[in-house]
Design a protein around this nucleic acid. Structure first.
Lengths: 301, 301
DNA sequence: TGCCATGATAGTGACTGTCTATCAGTCTAG
DNA sequence: CTAGACTGATAGACAGTCACTATCATGGCA
């Protein structure tokens, strides 16, 4: 059974006239006659009584026509709804973001995203890298902003911007005298984030530390880490976008002599169909952060 | 858009697997892939994200799938309902019957009809010939039992049985002496039904009267007419099936010397599609009344 | 009785749904 | 780490079906 034939049926019922119904359907009268007869044969029921001047629905047709109307209406709803869903830059876009990035990046990019794609409802989801990748693979996220490379053939990614690390020092720290700090110098009394934060591993790697730390205090958030540094518990490396928050906390920032940093990327499933949305969101973020690396390094003196 | 493709969509959503969905639909996997891709192109929306091991509905698909289910369910309802409507010997059958026949015929044929076609709901409608023909033409009746010929190319009819007229006499009437009565003898003090009853014209014609009657009393029903005859107001002709009722009223019945009578026919629109129901109902009635004419004539002595 | 209106039929061409055969990519196991 | 299995996509061939034009059959009307 074909939806087209059901539409023909409705047209004949409405017009009570094969010729006019055919015209309304944009087909020829013979086509309508043939198709309707086929439908009648398929259903095993005569749908219309053809009089010499009138075409009247049979009792069987009266019983069926309500369901026919519903089916056709649903089909039209599907078509209309699909049309409204057609724009990949519209609808929900679930974007994962790592915790050391979210609080500092989102304020910068929310407004531009909203401006550029009014119909795109960006829903941020803050979690650590491993969780984000898992949720990406289970279709619970559409894309994720990470500071690590992603591997596996099921995921793809693209770099958005480079974010330099900065040395974060307590106000009275001896290293604050210098214009730039060597990472190895920080290793002595460095504070790091809790397990699972990519920034933890990156900071340790930058300082040449393997992993085992004497310090037992590990901050669960970058905000806490900043407070700890400001209180004189030690030093740390922070990502450039957190510079403002660090300075607000009374922390002294110095560029690193090696210009170490991390690259923020957007990652997505290779099979994700709304590729355009990913590209668009990535482009807005990259555009907003263009030239940020140099500015951040220069500003932290 | 095709209902078939919507079914394919549901199958893929249910199985999450093209091969198994294709098997469930009874088609090959390539066919399913091609058709689903076409549907996606038609809708302008990607419906499934094809992973290496998984097939997952997209957000757009989730939005659409409810309507798809409804449309397909309605289509199935139409097919199922049509199947149950397929039997022409089932459902309502609106049967018009003239008033001089209905009270005497229906008690005879209702049980046989019900027995023969349990699913056929025969709805009798009692009215005069002209009204029945009108209602037949306006599709308010499916068939009609008449005692006249029908003409016009839009109507068809078939004789069911012959019904002899009988002379109906008051108990003390002089004609009651005879074995058979000549119609002309009745003309003197004949009583007839009101205008519009075919029996009125037929009775008058049988008696050789043109139309203008001296009598002003005209019965509106055969039952009333019988009461009038029984009360001695005059004589009349009655159809054979009313013999029982007439005798119950104390009326003397005599066969007519000319064996005049009427033929009861079933009439229907030539275009009426449930021809089988008409034939079946007609055959049951004719069968029930087979041999009635002779019996009635013989019994009225 | 001839003309108009209406739906049915015949014959034909184009499209489309389906098949089999095959490919490309990913995952798994020895 | 490579061979094989699994999954969906693609290619080419064929058949069924939908659509058209031309024409017919019938009934109503002037």
């Amino acid at each position: 059974m074909n939806l087209r034939d059901l539409r023909y049926l409705l047209a004949v019922a409405e017009h009570g006239h094969f010729g006019r119904a055919a015209e309304a359907c944009g087909i020829s009268q013979p086509t309508l006659s043939v198709q309707l007869r086929k439908l009648e044969e398929l259903l095993g029921v005569v749908l219309f009584e053809r009089g010499s001047k009138t075409v009247t629905p049979t009792a069987a047709c009266e019983r069926l026509i309500g369901h026919v109307r519903t089916a056709v209406a649903e089909a039209d709803t599907i078509l209309g709804l699909a049309r409204s869903l057609r724009d990949p830059l519209a609808g929900r876009f679930r974007l994962g973001i790592i915790p050391t990035l979210a609080p500092y990046l989102l304020p910068l990019v929310f407004a531009p995203l909203r401006e550029a794609f009014a119909a795109l409802e960006v829903e941020p989801w803050e979690d650590q890298t491993a969780v984000l990748l898992e949720r990406l693979r289970t279709h619970d996220l559409d894309a994720a902003l990470l500071a690590t490379d992603v591997d596996g053939p099921d995921l793809a990614s693209r770099p958005l911007f480079a974010e330099p690390f900065l040395a974060a020092l307590p106000p009275e720290h001896p290293l604050a005298e210098r214009q730039a700090v060597a990472e190895a110098d920080l290793a002595e009394d460095i504070l790091v984030l809790a397990d699972g934060h990519c920034l933890r591993d990156q900071a340790l790697a930058a300082c040449g530390r393997s992993g085992a730390l004497s310090r037992t205090m590990r901050a669960t958030s970058l905000s806490t880490l900043l407070n700890m540094v400001a209180a004189g518990y030690g030093t740390t490396l922070i990502p450039g976008l957190a510079a403002g928050a660090a300075q607000d906390a009374g922390i002294i920032l110095r560029p690193l002599s090696t210009r170490a940093g991390r690259t923020v990327r957007i990652a997505w499933r290779a099979s994700f169909p709304r590729r355009a949305a990913v590209e668009a969101v990535g482009e807005v973020i990259a555009g907003r952060l263009r030239g940020f690396a140099e500015g951040a390094a220069a500003g932290a003196i």
